[in-house]
């Protein structure tokens, strides 16, 4: 698969799965996509182990863009990228973008064969700053 992979990480499995549903319906199946949510013990939260699993599932040689919701999801995603380690960690980016809009826009960009850099830039455009 040469399209950039998209990983969705929310504190809530329902939010993550719902976001993934929207991506699938709006963008189709050619983009590698995975999601995770919840702390692994039935509560809200994020799990480094689950994020690493989602990155594996959505892995693409073109790279992976991760969309997150609140702070802990970002911290845990950065930890997961670090634990996956080099050289693959260089091809994984945690995006600064709203999770739903970011995932849909990033996946749309990816489905057209854009590079990781282009996919991430598209997601970042959604973020005010």
């Amino acid at each position: 698969m040469s399209n950039v992979g998209i990983v969705i990480v929310s504190h809530s499995p329902l939010v993550a799965e719902g976001t993934a549903d929207m991506v699938r319906q709006m963008v189709g199946d050619e983009v590698p996509l995975a999601w995770c949510g919840g702390n692994g013990h039935g509560g809200l939260g994020t799990s480094v182990e689950a994020i690493m699993g989602a990155i594996e599932k959505a892995w693409s040689e073109a790279g992976v863009a991760i969309l997150v919701d609140l702070g802990g999801a970002e911290t845990n995603s950065e930890m997961a990228v670090e634990m996956i380690g080099e050289p693959r960690s260089h091809k994984i980016v945690v995006c600064n973008a709203p999770i739903v809009e970011g995932a849909v826009m990033a996946a749309t960009e990816s489905s057209g064969g854009a590079s990781l850099k282009e996919v991430v830039a598209t997601a970042h455009e959604l973020s005010p700053s």
Binding site: G40, S47, V48, T75, M79
Partner: peptide, 18 residues
């Protein structure tokens, strides 16, 4: 540290793990 990262959850896991 690695065990804490994998088991604590929340943002505390990566922070104390790190």
């Amino acid at each position: 540290g690695t065990k804490l990262v994998m088991t604590v959850g929340g943002a505390s896991g990566p922070l104390f793990g790190t």
